[in-house]
């Protein structure tokens, strides 16, 4: 195990672990979505497959697998077949730069818990990839050859583009504050010292803008206009069925997980807990514990996603655009200017 293999094998193992974890996470987020929504509506939710319905995602997967795969007559076939992949692929490769813990030491070798540990441009990478996730929506909606799909796609594209600005500016103010694009440094800046708090307190404005924008970016209620069932059937994935529909579905939930990880890393201290140091637990267990803490925080964020979805009604389209361009965007600019001014006058506290 020398040379390139010393890099490739751990990376491969980490990719496998992350894909497995994320895919399981996606599956169980769908279950959680159904369970939590049921509880909020005084129902019981799926409980047939396995104890408490825990095997429901498996059943769903099997069902998706055996459903008929329909291509509409009016569809533009090559793009119609490509679009689901373009949705799922960016959703998955964003995990390359997300650090999900400190590091573990196995057999004297220390492995940082991230697929691409040396990446000091993690945030730019994440923004770049998420800016490309529009393609899946746009192409799926257009190539289906259905007016509902086209409407959904156009809505989705303009919404995602509009809200990316808010996200970018909110993130940039954090970047300006910490002076780095590196997730690890940003996480390290939030804990482990006097006066270092999770960023959602000092950067509350950025936090609000970011959170609202991330709901729009992931097409979740109250901003799920691209797939508003009561208006345009299913939006851009109206015509899809079977495994291709499942890809959209998984892509959406994987995006939610990425967004949650993003929020946790930027505003909630990543894998750190207040007053806890992972060095106390040793190099192996400390690392694993940090991973567990990180995923728990993501789970809480996912719960909030679901909670909001089953509480708030959908925005009207002009309201969505007004909120994005006339409320959040100026707010983000204001926040950016405030952070810059503070840094200019007072420097880092």
């Amino acid at each position: 195990m020398t040379g390139i293999w010393a890099i490739v094998i751990p990376a491969f193992v980490k990719i496998l672990v992350i894909i497995a974890v994320v895919m399981t996470g996606v599956a169980y987020t769908t279950l959680a979505e159904r369970k939590v929504s049921a509880w909020m509506q005084d129902r019981k939710g799926p409980n047939r497959a396995g104890p408490f319905g825990l095997l429901q995602p498996v059943a769903d997967g099997i069902k998706f697998f055996f459903k008929e795969d329909i291509t509409p007559k009016e569809a533009y076939r090559p793009i119609y077949l490509l679009a689901p992949l373009l949705t799922l692929f960016p959703a998955l490769i964003t995990f390359a730069v997300i650090p999900f813990g400190t590091s573990v030491t196995v057999a004297g070798q220390t492995y940082p818990l991230a697929i691409a540990p040396g990446m000091n441009l993690g945030i730019v990478y994440l923004l770049a990839i998420s800016s490309m996730s529009v393609y899946g929506i746009l192409l799926a909606g257009w190539s289906s050859g259905s007016k509902y799909s086209l409407m959904g796609a156009l809505r989705g594209a303009s919404q995602v583009i509009s809200y990316e600005l808010g996200i970018g500016l909110a993130v940039l103010s954090i970047v300006l504050w910490t002076g780095t694009f590196d997730f690890n440094a940003i996480v390290a800046d939030q804990t482990g010292g006097w006066g270092k708090v999770w960023f959602f307190i000092p950067h509350f404005l950025a936090f609000v803008v970011f959170t609202v924008s991330i709901f729009a970016e992931t097409n979740r209620l109250p901003f799920d206009l691209p797939e508003g069932e009561s208006e345009i059937v299913g939006g851009y994935h109206t015509e899809y069925s079977g495994l291709r529909f499942a890809m959209f579905f998984m892509g959406e939930y994987a995006n939610m997980i990425t967004a949650s990880a993003f929020v946790v890393l930027l505003f909630f201290g990543g894998w750190n807990l207040p007053f806890v140091r992972y060095e106390w637990f040793g190099p192996l267990w400390g690392g694993l514990l940090s991973m567990v803490v990180f995923f728990s925080k993501i789970a809480v964020c996912l719960f909030i996603f679901i909670w909001v979805r089953w509480t708030l009604p959908r925005f009207r389209y002009d309201q969505l655009m007004t909120l994005g361009w006339r409320r959040l965007f100026p707010l983000a600019v204001l926040n950016f200017v405030l952070v810059a001014t503070w840094l200019l006058l007072r420097g880092r506290p």
């Binding site: 730019v124 990839i129 393609y135 257009w142 086209l150 694009f181």
Partner: peptide, 24 residues
Amino acid sequence: PFLGLFQMIVYAGAVMVIALYVIM
């Protein structure tokens, strides 16, 4: 590397999407 990522944001993420949007 960051220019490469900016390239993706600016061209693939914005210019091409707007062009696609107009075409569609």
